[in-house]
Design a protein around this nucleic acid. Structure first.
Lengths: 190, 190
DNA sequence: CCCAAATGAGACACTGACGTCTCACTCCTT
DNA sequence: AAGGAGTGAGACGTCAGTGTCTCATTTGGG
């Protein structure tokens, strides 16, 4: 474990720290580096050995979020079967990362310029799903895919917060998002 | 203008400053007190004469937002006519305050405890609208009013940001929110 | 016209968080 | 057992933002 810059246990721990940091910053976006370190059960110095600074930590978090969301998109097989079902699968797959996504979205909101190019790729994939649904006659065409994509992010984040604060039940997460996004609040005439 | 604590011009300017601060903080939530002052064309000292500190400013902003949202609820006459139409009216009335609302929602998100009691009142009114729609058979009953309320806030904020960043057209603001919230993305079988 | 109030600019101290560094201490390997 | 790598605790210096203060200047009313 001394022959490499990234030793065997190091990366594991790094990832562990990253997940803990994600969980904490999701709940308290203004958490201190010290709080992040304590939350992971390590010292502030060690945290700095893993991540050069707060910016580096956030950037690493961003890459983790992008990776997880991309994995969710893969696992959901968004280009197979009916778009509605694909969207439902996507919501289900994205649930574990919802809090992190919510954090990153608001974080991006206040970062001026130079956004990670990974987001564009993800936006494109989500957008493509909605477009596919539209072209297949499954989704309505009077709402632009860009808006549906934004709304997807927004609802996922909103639901994550609402669950966090206990305003809605965690078990309804997937159902509430998918149903509202797909069918809306109005009772459909069946 | 010397016989009162709140002189004639003072309150006007205070409100003016508040609106400017709202507009700025909506775009840049981390803006400095100095930036807020400059944006209003006043000195930092004068800003401190109006608002004791940053906390006081945010609190005043919160009260402004609550006031405006309450006014929107009043103007939308949410307890009259079909719930769908009432919701559409509400979205229309809330549009000018959408950015401020988005700012306050995320601000509240990171504030632990002691939320302004005004929010409960607003939540109750929005929630009541959805419940009315459900009881009237107009809205589906499998989505809890609390979730619909959260989703409403979420979509308004998301749309405000998306418009801000030019990802969607500003003129579609009302339509996109109301249509998605009411009808969802799926093409309804008419 | 004059005076009082309000303002803007700047100086100042204080705070909180950050980033760097050192120094014991604890494992783990050999 | 001995050596080294990694760690935790803590002590700095730095910096940005805040809140307070003073003082010269402007503004508006009497």
């Amino acid at each position: 474990m001394s022959h490499l810059g990234y030793g065997c246990l190091m990366t594991v721990d790094r990832d562990q720290v990253l997940r803990t940091a994600a969980a904490l910053l999701t709940r308290k976006p203004t958490a201190t580096m010290d709080e992040v370190a304590r939350a992971s059960g390590i010292g502030r110095a060690t945290l700095h050995r893993h991540f050069a600074g707060r910016d580096a930590l956030v950037k690493a978090l961003e890459e983790l979020g992008i990776r997880e969301f991309e994995a969710a998109l893969d696992a959901a097989r968004t280009d197979e079967g009916p778009a509605s079902d694909a969207l439902r699968r996507l919501v289900a797959e994205v649930e574990p990362a919802a809090g992190l996504l919510a954090f990153l979205v608001t974080e991006n909101q206040l970062f001026e310029g130079e956004v990670n190019e990974g987001w564009d790729r993800l936006d494109a994939r989500v957008s493509a799903l909605f477009r596919r649904g539209q072209e297949g006659g499954e989704f309505r065409i009077d709402l632009p895919p860009a808006w549906l994509t934004e709304a997807f992010y927004g609802l996922v984040g909103t639901a994550a917060w609402a669950v966090q604060d206990g305003r809605v039940a965690a078990k309804d997460f997937q159902y509430m998002i998918a149903e509202l996004l797909l069918g809306g609040a109005r009772r459909s005439v069946e």
